[in-house]
């Protein structure tokens, strides 16, 4: 790991200024991904601005929803009563991620800003356009069993690793950010981006902007939700495919639905058309199968990840069954 300057401001303004002064500076919160990448030489910031002492860890009711401070720990959010009652999908997604220890360290903001776990991104001896633009995408013709089936480009086929973000994408969250130019809100679905020709950019955050909070609007999904995470061991592994499913049921009829997938694209993959295909229908496996088929339109596989073309729709069906209480 390279040497770097370390500062630990206690005020938000100071933190943003500390970062703005230096192009090669990074905020550090939990550090669970950044330090991992720094140890491997994938990221080499010259300055770390430790934001852990900023007062940004509150979980609170706000007008029309719940605001979760960017520095709220993943475990604190998952265990929070308000979250468990009103956003059980988010609590489930958080508990599906990482380990108890990591959830005690990782913050909400940091979780969203995780980099991909693509093998090629992680190994500085291998090509990766995200790490080193222009070096090529190692995964495209390489080992790509973990990789994207939606929204990829010929520059990058990596997937976003966060579970929490899949739930937030389903729940129409908004990200509150603050930067040198002031505060702004970014719809969660616009927060992460597709790789296109600039896979080095994971998000639409601008240089120097700090994630301050995530706001989740009130919703109709206090129950009938399920976060399904399919992985290669029973816990503590990244998703092959994950599904955040939320249903509002009137008797057996679906009044509203939210669906998003993880492990399939460079960003949390919201499935609005599949949601539309669910509304007004009876909550049956057959309905879920049809919605899953809608969800999979446009999916395309590479050499090693064709299984996702079957696993993803199956997982959608299973998540919806679980949400509807049919399992």
């Amino acid at each position: 790991m390279n040497q770097f300057q370390y500062v630990r401001p206690t005020k938000q303004k100071a933190a943003i200024e500390a970062l703005a002064r230096d192009a090669n500076a990074q905020f550090i919160a939990g550090g669970t991904n950044l330090l991992d990448l720094m140890k491997r030489g994938v990221m080499q910031p010259q300055k770390l601005v430790d934001i852990n002492r900023l007062p940004l860890n509150k979980i609170e009711r706000m007008d029309g929803g719940i605001r979760i401070g960017a520095l709220a720990l993943n475990s604190a959010v998952a265990e929070d009563q308000l979250v468990q009652q009103q956003l059980p999908l988010l609590a489930q997604a958080l508990n599906a991620g990482a380990s108890a220890q990591l959830r005690n360290m990782a913050t909400v903001g940091g979780n969203m800003l995780q980099r991909t776990r693509c093998h090629y991104f992680y190994d500085t001896a291998l090509p990766c356009n995200k790490r080193e633009p222009g070096s090529g995408c190692g995964a495209l013709e390489g080992i790509n069993r973990m990789h994207a089936i939606f929204g990829f480009s010929d520059k990058c086929i990596a997937v976003h690793p966060s579970d929490m973000s899949v739930a937030l994408a389903a729940l129409d969250a908004t990200v509150l950010v603050s930067g040198p130019k002031g505060e702004r809100r970014i719809a969660f679905l616009d927060f992460h981006r597709l790789p296109g020709d600039t896979p080095q950019k994971d998000t639409n955050l601008e240089q120097g902007e700090l994630v301050v909070a995530v706001e989740v609007p009130e919703n109709a999904f206090p129950k009938n939700v399920h976060y399904l995470k399919v992985r290669e061991r029973a816990s503590y592994a990244f998703a092959l495919v994950s599904v955040a499913a939320a249903l509002q049921l009137d008797g057996n009829t679906i009044k509203a639905a939210r669906l998003a997938m993880g492990g399939v694209a460079h960003k949390p993959w919201r499935l609005t058309e599949a949601e539309a295909a669910l509304v007004g229908k009876p909550a049956t496996e057959e309905t879920f199968r049809q919605a899953a088929a809608v969800a999979m339109q446009g999916a395309k596989a590479f050499k090693h990840n064709a299984y996702k073309l079957k696993l993803a729709p199956n997982s959608i069906v299973q998540a919806l069954k679980n949400a509807a209480g049919l399992a």
Partner: peptide, 26 residues
């Protein structure tokens, strides 16, 4: 050394964490 095994688990202010993925200064 990457937060993938838990062998480094300690308690910080009573909470279990992976000591390999946090800087001492933090």
């Amino acid at each position: 050394d990457y937060g993938q095994c838990g062998a480094c688990t300690v308690h910080v202010d009573g909470q279990r964490v992976n000591s390999c993925l946090t800087l001492a200064v933090m």
